[in-house]
Amino acid sequence: MTARIGVITFPGTLDDVDAARAVRYAGAEAVSLWHRDTDLQGVDAVVVPGGFSYGDYLRAGAIAARSPVMGPVVDAARRGMPVLGICNGFQILCEAGLLPGALVRNTGLRFICREIRLRVEADTAWTSGFEVGSAITVPLKSGEGRFVADAETLDRLEGEGRVVFRYAEPAPNGALRDIAGVCSTDGRVVGLMPHPEHAIDPLTGPGADGLGLFTSVLGRLTAAA
């Protein structure tokens, strides 16, 4: 049976069409979820896409984290459902307490849009198809992408192997320890600032490296079934 992966749209979400396309390219069915939904329609996994949910008012991701749809997402994630947060989605997962740390303004205070190389450093639900240590190229596009946490948290994330992606060059946004993405303790909830959904086809992106995240989770879902 085809896996069904939910893609959430909040007011101000922008990359939902891209995330849904990536899900389809990977061979799964993309299910649209609306911010007011309180039922996840039985999806097997959820992608929280990028954009400026609720206009980034208050704080990026803060309002979306408290929206109706996030209640069941958090519950399902705590029971092991794979969740991927990209860019604003990563911010939302941090604000919702599913991932540690926070994303703050880039050190240069400017929005940065460029292709970037990332090192895959952990085997998670969303990276099982990659060799740990391999590099992928995907776009980074954000103004508030600097990952920060206290030193203790950073040490713990590194010690527990929960740094999933690290910038292969000095982080252009000033992210602490060059961290681009992290995961939950069970490795099923992953958040990253760069955009794998924009790297699924050489026609429209730097290549197809990003598709690996979506095929990885399908592999896990199939294996679990």
Binding site: L14, D15, V17, D18, R21, R110, F111, I112, C113, R114, P139, K141, H195, E197, H198, I200, D201, L203, T204, G205
Partner: peptide, 14 residues
């Protein structure tokens, strides 16, 4: 200039 603009969103930029 152009690195401050998103060029990828919607996935149709060739």
């Amino acid at each position: 200039v152009t690195e401050q603009y998103d060029r990828y969103v919607r996935g149709n930029t060739a």
